[in-house]
Amino acid sequence: MGHFNSEVLQRAKELIALYPHPRSALIPLCHLAQEQDGWLTPEAIEEIAQLLDISPAEVAGTASFYDMFHRKPVGRYLISVCTNIACMLSGGRELLQHVSQRLGVAVGGTTADGMFTLEEAECLADCGSAPVVQVNHRFFSAMTPDSVDQLVEDLAAGKLSDVVPPHGVLNRVKREVGLQVPVEELVRQRREASQAREERARLAQQGQEGRS
């Protein structure tokens, strides 16, 4: 028995099939693992390695490069507060301090009930609505201390579960179709098309020469 449940395993195989080389699916599979488990577990790393036919160390070593992959459990809601330049100019650093006090955890910490993890984010590309907060990478922009308090309250009460799925769920929209055309066929098509174009160009040139 592998670590992935049958549905996740099926989706993993579909993802791998989208790429010319299986290893390209590494990041999508790590996201999938976090969707199942909430974080990137050693068991999931083993399974991804098997699926991609590489070593677990290669999976772990790659995943550790990326901020979104958590090798330790995080809260159900990961709150990211941006403090980069545009948000800083609009009170982002003070907002981060406020959330830290409100939750009673230091930046990087998780609340005792496992509900919230707080992190300081780099620019989240919504700077026109600074300061910017994400919860599980869903945007809550132009926040104030009051609105962020309300947000935390609503999350704790489970009021936002439609908008904010549990941590790890990134993409709820499945790709409906696999690849439509095998590469060998495409290579042949491109070659034929290019030969046909050259032939047409040659004929056109001949025609012109014939006229002149």
């Binding site: 790429y19 995943a63 993409n171 055309v181 495409l186």
Partner: peptide
């Protein structure tokens, strides 16, 4: 013919 894939970063 061509296929297109949406690929997430991390």
């Amino acid at each position: 013919s061509v296929d297109l894939v949406v690929h997430p970063g991390a």
